[in-house]
């Protein structure tokens, strides 16, 4: 099971599209850095993520709070902090970073 990490805004990069083409059901996707903007409710990228209920979707709390978007997130994205990020890394078999 792979942990995918995504660190760019979906407006500046096609990484989210590419990432989702490689995901298997049950894998995990962590949005971090500018990638957290993909979790903003009502955005095209949030819709793409919602359509993939088969993958576990997370956003890094510290990056969400830094950008002042805590109140804007889609409901189906779970927040994790850095300790949670480390736990996900240990839980998954490999980490694939999209940047």
């Amino acid at each position: 099971m792979i942990l995918h990490t995504l660190n760019k805004s979906a407006d500046t990069s096609t990484n989210l599209h590419s990432c989702l083409r490689t995901t298997l059901p049950g894998c995990a996707l962590l949005l971090l850095e500018d990638g957290v903007y993909a979790a903003v409710k009502g955005s095209v990228s949030a819709s793409m993520l919602s359509a993939r209920a088969d993958i576990r979707r997370y956003a890094l709390r510290e990056d969400v709070e830094a950008r002042g978007i805590s109140a804007l997130l889609a409901d189906d994205i779970e927040l994790v902090d850095y300790a949670g990020f480390v736990a996900l890394t240990a839980e998954c078999d490999a980490v694939q970073s999209w940047y």
Partner: peptide, 17 residues
């Protein structure tokens, strides 16, 4: 193909992008 790609990636121990 779209069907083969995820499993191919998943079959590796480590991935470097």
């Amino acid at each position: 193909t779209q069907e083969e790609l995820p499993a191919f990636i998943d079959s590796h121990d480590q991935v470097i992008g």
